[in-house]
Lab assay of single mutants.
Amino acid sequence: TGEEYIAVGDFTAQQVGDLTFKKGEILLVIEKKPDGWWIAKDAKGNEGLVPRTYLEPYS
């Protein structure tokens, strides 16, 4: 389980392990790392690192 967040901007993977997403996408945050990069999963089940500055809590 995780917390749902909504993307407030588009993000394109910079390196292997990053997750590309579009503004408005709902992501499930699995782990919040202290460096500001969180592990998240998208609706298709893809998992990767995302920058927390692009996310806001979804309710």
Rank of each mutant, 00 (worst) to 15 (best):
E47C: 14
E47Q: 12
D10F: 04
D42A: 03
P51W: 12
E4G: 06
D42L: 03
G2L: 13
G48Q: 01
V50G: 01
I6S: 03
F11P: 01
L27T: 01
V8M: 15
A43K: 12
S59K: 15
V50H: 00
E3W: 13
G45T: 02
Y5K: 01
T20W: 04
P51H: 14
D42S: 07
T12R: 08
S59V: 13
V50Q: 00
G24R: 03
V8S: 07
K22T: 10
F21M: 05
N46Y: 08
K33V: 07
W38Y: 06
G48P: 00
K41A: 07
G24T: 03
D35K: 03
K32I: 06
A7S: 09
G9V: 12
V29K: 00
Y54T: 06
F21Q: 00
L28N: 07
I39A: 06
T1P: 12
L27E: 00
A43F: 09
S59D: 14
K32H: 05
K32C: 04
Y54F: 12
E4H: 15
Y58S: 08
E25S: 09
S59A: 13
Y54A: 14
I39G: 03
I6E: 04
E31T: 11
P57F: 09
Q14V: 13
T12A: 08
Q15G: 13
K22G: 06
A7R: 00
K33S: 09
K22C: 07
K32T: 05
I6G: 02
I30S: 06
L19M: 07
E25H: 07
T1S: 13
F11G: 02
L28A: 05
K23C: 09
K41H: 08
E25L: 02
G45W: 04
L49P: 05
D35N: 10
L19S: 01
I26M: 07
T20D: 08
Y5L: 02
Q14S: 11
E47V: 13
T53K: 12
Q14L: 11
G9L: 15
Q15K: 15
S59Q: 14
I6F: 06
A40S: 03
L49H: 11
G17K: 05
P34C: 10
L19N: 01
N46W: 05
D35L: 05
E25F: 04
E4K: 15
E31Y: 10
L55N: 00
D35W: 04
E56G: 04
K32R: 08
E3M: 11
E47S: 10
Q14D: 09
E3K: 08
D18S: 11
D10L: 02
I30P: 01
E25M: 08
G36N: 07
L49R: 14
Y5F: 11
Y54S: 09
Y54P: 02
T20Q: 08
I26C: 05
T20K: 05
D18F: 15
I26G: 02
W37Q: 07
G17V: 04
Q15C: 09
G36E: 06
I30E: 02
L55P: 00
L27Q: 01
E47M: 11
T12Y: 15
W37I: 09
G9F: 14
G36P: 04
A40Q: 00
S59E: 12
V50R: 00
E31Q: 11
A7L: 02
G17M: 05
P51Y: 13
A13M: 06
L55V: 06
W38E: 00
A13I: 03
T20N: 09
E3V: 10
G9D: 14
D35A: 04
F11E: 01
T53P: 06
G2W: 10
L27A: 01
E3D: 08
Q14W: 08
T12E: 13
L19E: 00
L27H: 01
T53C: 12
Q14C: 14
G48C: 02
G2K: 09
L19H: 02
Q14F: 09
E25W: 09
A13S: 11
A40I: 03
Y5V: 02
K22H: 13
D10G: 06
I30K: 06
G2T: 10
V16N: 11
S59W: 12
G24Y: 05
L55H: 00
G36F: 05
I6P: 01
P34G: 13
Y5Q: 02
D35S: 08
A7T: 10
